[in-house]
Design a protein around this nucleic acid. Structure first.
Lengths: 223, 223
DNA sequence: TGTATTCAGAGAGCAGTGCTCTCGCAATCT
DNA sequence: AGATTGCGAGAGCACTGCTCTCTGAATACA
């Protein structure tokens, strides 16, 4: 079932060639259609496979730290995502890059594996909140920046009940921003948006960004 | 010189077909090669064109507000980027999505137009700093989260001199994170990463995220 | 005005793609 | 032993990027 994973890794998602996959398997192209309905389903399989591998690595990295080490777990999550993304840039692009033209992922098969990272992130934040270790950072306390508009509050309420969380609106919204920001930073690095050699020390850059995001999420940096 | 812009808009970057562009122009495919060396150069032209249109709209939105309204200008920048991205999702994907397989953008032609948004963003932050209106948010003051490792500090110093800025390391790093976070949030929305109807009020979500990012950047929300 | 040059586009053709169809071979089941 | 099933091969369709040659028209030059 490793249909074309290494080929995707080499050539990228949009250029994924069913015929090339067949060649890698030492088989003619029409034979692949015995196992896969079309190129779309091949992409779907690769999508689910990638989501699950990323989810596995994130879960392993997070689970290696004690449950109460919320800040440590958050950092482990971010580092695991980045490590996987840098190791598998094409597959990362398939998951978080521009959608493949003409391809629409079947939600009923991909939402499960596709929500594992945000699930893990929210579990950390929710656990920290329930343990009284998640505080609204000072810069949001006095002003109304953290105020949540009514329609957004409705969306957040649906997410909270849907995921079984306890965090209040403002912190939930911060969690969502941390989520998108994490992937934004990683995407910039993986996709080469920073420019050729703008950052000679990308590890330090990311570590700094992770620390800032932890602060944004309301996680104290204590161990 | 509108070679295939609408075609890209419809079908996406990776599916951009030189032959289809030729058809749109009412011409046979080989004729296009009179004006464009190959598909790569066609992509490069579209890339530069998109960068410049985005840059123009951002500059216009930012320039519509008084120079001293740093927070307003920041919000205008973010809203302009999002507006353009939602209006031109395929072109946005070309700029900020997964790289087109086998295509390498020529830095000497694209870095100029490609840095206009970060340039505008940094100008706002730098202006606010020089005006004494950019403060390190409270949540970074007491701890060492904002401490910048030595190699990262070297990178930041190069950026500062290269762009002629005055902001210190910690704020410059925050600016970079705000930059990537902004595009991370927009990419999630444009690329449909949030899930089908997770957010019924995406405008409110983005407005909230922009406010949080303004806080992260150190911009007071005063007018 | 007559010739030479340039240039835009057409058309054929190459190798590649996704995909469908038919066919043959081999293992399996009854 | 005979029928069924499944796997893979091969041909063929329309599409792609790209190269080549050829034609026809506009232009430059004398």
């Amino acid at each position: 079932m490793r249909l074309g994973r290494e080929h995707l890794a080499v050539h990228g998602a949009a250029a994924l060639s069913l015929r090339a996959v067949a060649r890698d398997l030492g088989v003619v192209s029409s034979a692949v259609y015995r196992y896969v309905e079309n190129r779309e389903e091949l992409l779907t399989l690769l999508l689910i496979d990638a989501y699950n591998e990323l989810g596995d690595e994130v879960d392993a990295a997070v689970g290696a730290l004690p449950e109460a080490d919320f800040a440590g777990r958050f950092r482990a999550l971010g580092e695991a995502v980045r490590r996987w993304a840098l190791r598998e840039p094409a597959r990362y692009g398939l998951l978080f890059g521009s959608p493949v033209p003409g391809y629409r992922a079947p939600a009923e098969r991909t939402t499960g594996p596709g929500t594992r990272v945000i699930r893990a992130l929210m579990d950390i934040l929710d656990g920290a909140y329930r343990a009284g270790r998640l505080a609204a950072p000072d810069d949001s306390a006095p002003d109304d920046r953290a105020a949540v508009a009514a329609p957004l509050a409705a969306d957040l309420a649906a997410i909270r009940t849907g995921m079984g969380l306890a965090v209040p609106d403002a912190l939930l919204a911060r969690g969502a921003l941390v989520w998108t920001s994490l992937f934004g930073a990683i995407s910039f690095e993986v996709f080469g948006q920073y420019g050729a050699d703008t950052f000679a020390a990308p590890d330090d850059l990311f570590a700094h960004q992770l620390a800032l995001l932890a602060g944004l999420a309301g996680l104290a940096q204590a161990a």
